[in-house]
């Protein structure tokens, strides 16, 4: 925490502006919100998805359905037994059939979480398209997956950690890069 080399890359106001920009891009590209459904990836993607939903409602007067995704059962490293992931609940109580799915996560890194999320969404039906929105793109992709909406792109070393704090879960809004 007190390491002087840790750097804050986004503060509360920057996060607010960024989320609002992402929402505007989503609405612009999809010409409104009529066919949208929003799905947040646990844990912090869910809070970002809620914020995005709130803004869409404010701007467009419509409220797309909101779902949460727990990708644990779709991970590609389950059998390596390196860590023990607790399974939480996926909740998608609406049809994704022919909808535009806005998939929301806090950070994109290797792309493996997104790969798992795509597979899981497909098990719920055949959406018209899936678009990925992230707050932070930190590079180092291991799969050919790119976000459609990226809040901020930062250069990191693999050994560094990107820590996203959101008020709903962590008490404050902040994105920090921690030295490895």
């Amino acid at each position: 925490m007190n390491n002087t080399k840790d750097r804050v890359v986004m503060d509360k106001r920057a996060i607010k502006r960024t989320v609002s920009r992402i929402v505007n891009e989503i609405l612009e590209r999809n010409k409104g919100a009529s066919d949208l459904v929003i799905i947040g990836v646990r844990t912090r993607g869910v809070y970002l998805a809620e914020r995005i939903l709130k803004l869409i409602k404010k701007l467009e007067g419509v409220e797309p359905p909101l779902g949460t995704l727990d990708i644990t059962l779709y991970r590609d490293d389950l059998r390596r037994k390196t860590e023990w992931p607790k399974v939480k609940k996926t909740e998608i109580k609406f049809s994704v059939e022919d909808k535009i799915v806005i998939l929301v996560d806090d950070v994109i890194y290797t792309g493996r979480t997104t790969r798992a999320a795509l597979e899981e969404i497909m098990d719920f039906g055949r959406p018209a398209s899936i678009q990925l929105a992230v707050l932070v793109d930190r590079g180092h992709r291991e799969l050919p997956i790119q976000p459609d909406y990226a809040g901020c792109t930062i250069d990191t070393l693999s050994k560094e950690k990107v820590r996203v704090h959101l008020k709903e879960n962590d008490g404050n809004d902040e994105v920090t890069v921690l030295q490895g």
Binding site: T72, L73, Y74, R75, L78, T90, E119, E120, D123, F124, G125
Partner: peptide, 11 residues
């Protein structure tokens, strides 16, 4: 998982 249309996960 048992409530989904596709009742199967790859775990």
């Amino acid at each position: 998982v048992s409530k989904r249309d596709v009742k199967k996960v790859p775990a």
